[in-house]
Each structure stands twice: as structure tokens, then as C-alpha cells.
Simulated assay, not measured.
Amino acid sequence: MKRVEFGSKVYATNSNGEGLFTRQATEGAYTQIKGNSQFKANKTAKGFISQLKRAGLISSDAEATYINW
């Protein structure tokens, strides 16, 4: 999983940059929000964050606290 954290909120994608997953805490299982065909593939963390902003999942001024891409 590739992931980007915004405080305690974690958004992730599969190793190909497809799909959208989330988890509330830093420990625990991921929950799928959107499938591969619903959330386009991202090659970079910057593109993934931009897509999260366009989808309204994070605010436009949000900054990642941790990136594992």
C-alpha cells in the first residue's frame, strides 16, 4: 500500500496507485472507499493528494504529515 497521512487520517492506494482506501488510526485494517475503476491511478503522491482534494476528502489547504509512496 502507498499511503499519505493527514494527522490521524490515513488515505492509501494499492501498489499500482489505483483504488482508494482509508483507516482512522495508525493501526488497523484499511477500508476500501472506491475501487480501481472509480479512483484513477496515480503515479505520484502529489497527484494522489490532488485527487483527494478534488474529491472533497481533504481541504484544499491540507498538508500531508507523512508520505510513504
Rank of each mutant, 00 (worst) to 15 (best):
T22R: 05
F6R: 11
G35S: 07
N36A: 13
Y66M: 02
T13P: 10
G28E: 01
I33F: 10
I49A: 04
T44H: 06
T22H: 12
E18W: 00
S59K: 09
A64L: 05
W69Q: 09
T31P: 00
E5F: 09
E27K: 14
K53S: 07
K2D: 01
N14C: 12
E63D: 02
S15W: 15
A64N: 03
E5T: 00
A55L: 09
Q38F: 04
I49W: 00
F39C: 14
N42I: 11
G47A: 03
K2C: 04
K43Y: 05
K2M: 05
N68K: 10
G47E: 14
R3Q: 13
I67P: 01
G56K: 01
F48G: 04
K2H: 06
A64D: 08
F39M: 05
F39G: 07
S37T: 12
S8D: 15
K2W: 06
I58V: 13
L57M: 07
T44C: 11
A41I: 10
T13M: 12
N16D: 15
T31E: 11
I67A: 08
G7F: 01
T26E: 06
Y11V: 00
A29Y: 08
E63T: 08
Q51E: 15
A55E: 02
F6H: 07
N68Q: 11
N16G: 07
F21Q: 00
N68G: 11
E63I: 05
K53T: 13
A55Y: 06
Y30T: 02
T31H: 12
